[in-house]
Structures are given as structure tokens and as C-alpha cells.
Amino acid sequence: MVRIAFTDNLKKHIDCPASHVDGATVREALNAVFASNPSLRAYILDDQSRLRKHVTIFHNGAMIADRTTLDIPVSAADEVYVFQALSGG
């Protein structure tokens, strides 16, 4: 199973503990999390299911480049981290 974890900065808005989910791609892994936590979806993805502009995802330590399809293969024991850009003031 893929381990997926979320930035602490998201946790003040919505409960989103790290979890282990099934999925063959980053998109599928995210959908598996959203299935049990539907409200989380709009914090990560925009209306068109693209990654939000100031959110980023690391897969096994590398930032993903495809922010639209999220069709990045993942396998068991992989780690996916959802982070936010440090911006604003």
C-alpha cells in the first residue's frame, strides 16, 4: 500500500492523518483518501481536479511535474507527500 501524508498546515483546516491506501497512480491514491474524506478533495484539487496552484506533491522525495492528470505510477511501499508552497504574508 502507498503511504500518503499531508502538510501540517492543512491540519488546522481539516483532519487529514497520514494513511496507507491502494492505488496504481498518485491520482488513484488521492482518490482513495478522498473516498473516506470527501471534504479534503477541494483543499488539494481545484474544480477541474487539477492540483491547486500553490499545492505540490512529492513522490518518493521528488516533486511531481504533471499537475493535471496526476497519472504518476506508484507502487507498494512508495511515499506520497502533499505539501503547500510557502508563500504569502
Partner: peptide, 27 residues
């Protein structure tokens, strides 16, 4: 700034707030 537009409603004069659906465009 990071996580998009959100909408909250309070039915007790602002003592507590509940997140509700935000407007979103169709896919």
C-alpha cells in the same frame, strides 16, 4: 492562499462555524 475558496456558516451568531460546500464550476 494554498487550499482554495471555502465557505463556512454559523447558526449560533458566530459562536461556532461549520464548513459547507463552496461554489465550484462543473467538470
Amino acid at each position: 492562499g494554498h487550499f482554495g475558496p471555502k465557505l463556512h456558516r454559523s447558526d449560533d451568531d458566530g459562536a461556532t462555524w461549520t464548513e459547507i460546500a463552496a461554489p465550484a464550476f462543473p467538470q
